[in-house]
């Protein structure tokens, strides 16, 4: 089917500058229908700035941005009526109950009152909060609030869901609760754009990833391909390596990162890293593991602290 190849988002050379600071510096990407696209990057990489332009929160400084085929500068209202947005901060309405939060939000989309209640109750069931429908939102836990924000973003049956760090600050249980819901939505064919700095989240949910830093796109691709290309297959980490190890790595030309007290060696499948390096040098503090997205991320964006 060619229909599945429809562009939901088309961003060409997107730029955002304010107060003399360039937050987004010529970013181009697209999101296809039914796809879950992840924007990864350290703090200040320009992820949030990029998606804030998508829902008209901050005007673009340059470039072209089309959502559902409409130019964002012309058809913003129409575009927003088909979006579901989970902003980074929990901005639930503390003056209203759990159910009212959904009902009042539905009014903003001109959803008829009769439909609203059923839809709201259905969504509360989906996020397993139907037993708390009359409670004040401030009495909910962080994870519950996050799920309610998700339900609120779904009240208009959106064609594109935008999630800005949906699980930041949640405990593992709450995080998995959110992921499960997102996986269900994804399975139903909803197009999703997500920003995160949790690699596990990105590799679990996303079909395709974009890694950003300092307002630019570093790489883009499917998670497995990115791992293979930038971190290989197997990883051996040796703490306080001796010169022998370093010499071996250099002579064999292994992909590696040499830190002060640690060497991280990345090997492709054929390089049989565990046998070649592992058996000989893994005596004490040494880790043998599979390469992960975190390796890719750190290799591309560096290991220095941000901010």
């Amino acid at each position: 089917m060619t229909e599945t190849r429809t562009n939901i988002i088309e961003a060409i050379n997107l730029r955002k500058a304010y107060n003399g600071f360039v937050a987004v510096d010529g970013v181009s990407f697209n999101l296809l229908k039914g796809e879950c696209l992840g924007l990864l990057g350290p703090n200040g990489a320009g992820k949030t700035s990029t998606i804030r332009m998508l829902y008209g929160f901050s005007p673009m400084s340059g470039g072209i941005l089309r959502v559902f085929g409409n130019d964002i500068e012309v058809g913003l209202r129409q575009i927003k009526s088909r979006l579901g947005v989970c902003q980074q901060e929990n901005n639930l309405d503390p003056d209203l109950s759990v159910l009212e939060n959904l009902q009042v939000f539905a009014r903003y989309f001109n959803i008829p009152r009769k439909e609203t209640r059923d839809r709201a109750l259905q969504l509360l069931k989906f996020i397993a909060l139907d037993h708390r429908k009359d409670d004040k939102v401030m009495s909910l836990s962080g994870g519950m609030m996050r799920r309610l924000v998700l339900a609120r973003a779904l009240i208009n049956n959106p064609d594109l869901l935008i999630l800005d760090e949906p699980t930041t600050g949640l405990d593992p249980q709450a995080r998995h609760q959110v992921w499960e819901r997102l996986e269900m939505l994804r399975a139903n064919g909803l197009s999703i754009l997500i920003t995160t700095h949790y690699m596990e989240e990105a590799s679990r949910l996303c079909d395709r990833l974009i890694i950003m830093d300092q307002g630019k796109i570093l790489v883009a691709g499917e998670p497995a391909d990115l791992i293979e290309q930038y971190a290989g297959d197997h990883v051996v980490e040796i703490v306080n390596p001796d010169d022998e190890v370093r010499e071996l790595v250099e002579s064999r030309g292994f992909m590696h990162d040499s830190l002060e007290h640690r060497i991280i060696i990345y090997g492709k499948k054929a390089e049989r890293l565990f046998e070649v390096v592992g058996e000989q040098f893994c005596r004490q503090t040494c880790v043998k593991r599979m390469a992960s997205l975190e390796d890719v991320f750190l290799r591309l964006t560096g290991r220095e602290l941000r901010e």
Binding site: L76, K80, N91, Y108
Partner: peptide, 14 residues
């Protein structure tokens, strides 16, 4: 404090 405006501005309202 409540960021109510932020939430509303992500809907069709300007």
């Amino acid at each position: 404090y409540q960021k109510t405006f932020d939430a509303i501005m992500a809907t069709p309202l300007s």
